[in-house]
Amino acid sequence: MEITGSYLFHGDQQSVWNILMNPDAIASAIPGVKELVPLENEAHAWRAEAKIGFSAISGTYGGFIHMSEINAPTSYRLDVKGEGQQSLINGHAVMTLLFLPDTHQTQVTWVAEAAISGKIARIGQRVIKAAASFLSRKFFNGLAQQLNPAAVLEDDSAPDGPIP
């Protein structure tokens, strides 16, 4: 399944890049994340545990995140492996940054490919794209808050809590 999207930050490309590379910032922005622990023997790799509230597939998920193909301050690749609730999630995403000088904004675009198995595939497929876009907007809004609390560009009016 392909999931694509983009997000506009108010700020220059280097600051946006810096925050995207900051594990603490990321950890506090990922919705439901409980832990993001760097792996000892591997750079740009973390073990994560997240709690997701999402109708029938609510629960705790564990997994690994690995960052590669880092081409500062323009692009990088993210590999995610997760499991929980009788489901497996395998995915990767390429994130690209583009500075828009006219508005002094930086656009982050992602193209992700996810292979979803088990219970989520059976009963969550229908809502997965909507959920992914909801969760990623929450994530980027969280980062934007940290970057510049006064200038969060995108609307965060979507209600918190489980997606029906």
Binding site: A56, S117, G118, K119, A121, R122, I123, Q125, R126
Partner: peptide
Amino acid sequence: DHGQLLTGSMMD
């Protein structure tokens, strides 16, 4: 294509 059942509930 990977053999995942997508019609796995009465909603689907």
